[in-house]
Simulated assay, not measured.
Amino acid sequence: MIKYFNRKTKDYEVEKVAGDKYLEWTYSSPVGLRFLELLIKKRLFSKLYGGFCDSKLSKIKINKFIEEFNIDENHFKSHKSDYKCFNDFFARNLKDEVRPIDYNTNILISPGDGRMVAYENININNLLQVKGLTYSLKDLIQNKDLAEKYIGGTCIVLRLAPTDYHRFHFLDWGICEDTHKIHGHYYSVNPIALEKIPKLFCENKREYSLFHSNNFGNVLYIDVGATCVGSIIQTYTPYVEVKKGDEKGYFKFGGSTIILFFESSKVKIDSDILEQTINGFECKVQMGEKIGTKL
């Protein structure tokens, strides 16, 4: 059972996990773990399933998914009948008014929908994955010089469940450099998997880019793939100025994670997010909502 804190209702809720029985079996049973290492974590498995989700046959999954997870169709920019395949629905655009953006230059917004934890004054060699398991920023991005720029900074981890809106956005005005791709495996990023696989984020396929933000310094964006995520699609144009809230990219089917790093003394994360992180809970957030302030 995964509980998270809903910032709007000020209450704790239980997450309805897509494929929860499959996840428990895969990451908890000896046979499941064997299949995980032999097949499920491999690129081929995710590529094949991603190919199915790109096909017309996968349209049959859309209605069931909407009903099972109570997804609000009124938020869709297009009617569900217009989606050509499951991935078309999964990476759906939403109406602008359902994700309002705070354009105050002093306000830090969430780059996407999901469940968030945050850490201040970080030790880049001892970043917390879950209690008892850590990883290093150098291993995550395989760039020691860049990693050292974030000593004592702030780290935000945004976990996107399969039921979430899967496009991610820029948190400020600025210019983003090219994306660097790092090959890896395709473990799930669900908390069930995070508790079982050491340095999971450093094991999975991931991409990072340096965003020169007008108000929050040089922000390191890291997009982490997961099981069945056939692709991480970057839709922005490198070295071209972007506006706060502009789309950066999207994930195809599967749970995914965005990790952000801020340099020291650039941002102050909202107290409720920090408090819930200390207490071991993620906070549910939506793209565009306030999560911190400029220092």
Rank of each mutant, 00 (worst) to 15 (best):
T26D: 10
Y27G: 13
Y27F: 07
S28A: 04
P30A: 13
P30Q: 15
P30T: 08
V31I: 15
G32D: 03
R34K: 14
F35Q: 00
F35Y: 15
E37W: 06
L38I: 02
L39P: 03
I40P: 14
I40L: 10
K41G: 07
K41V: 03
K41W: 11
K42I: 03
R43N: 12
R43D: 13
L44A: 02
K47G: 00
L48Q: 02
L48I: 04
L48T: 01
L48M: 10
G51N: 01
G51C: 00
G51R: 00
F52L: 01
C53P: 06
K56Q: 05
K56W: 09
L57F: 11
K59V: 10
I60L: 08
K61T: 05
N63A: 14
K64H: 10
I66W: 02
E68M: 10
F69N: 07
F69V: 07
D72L: 13
E73V: 07
E73Y: 06
N74H: 13
H75R: 15
H75S: 09
H75Q: 12
F76L: 12
H79G: 11
H79E: 15
K80G: 10
S81M: 07
Y83H: 01
Y83Q: 04
K84E: 15
K84Q: 11
D88R: 08
F89E: 05
F89S: 04
F90S: 02
A91S: 12
N93L: 11
N93K: 09
L94C: 00
L94G: 04
D96M: 03
E97C: 07
E97A: 06
R99A: 01
I101D: 01
D102G: 00
Y103T: 07
Y103N: 04
Y103A: 01
T105A: 03
N106E: 04
I107H: 10
I109N: 02
G112H: 05
D113F: 04
D113K: 06
G114Q: 06
A118F: 07
Y119W: 13
E120H: 07
E120P: 03
I124T: 02
I124M: 01
N126V: 06
N126Y: 15
L127R: 12
L133D: 13
L133E: 14
T134I: 06
Y135W: 08
L137W: 12
L137A: 10
K138I: 12
D139H: 14
D139W: 06
I141L: 08
N143S: 13
N143P: 08
K144Y: 14
D145S: 13
L146H: 04
Y150T: 05
Y150R: 05
G152T: 08
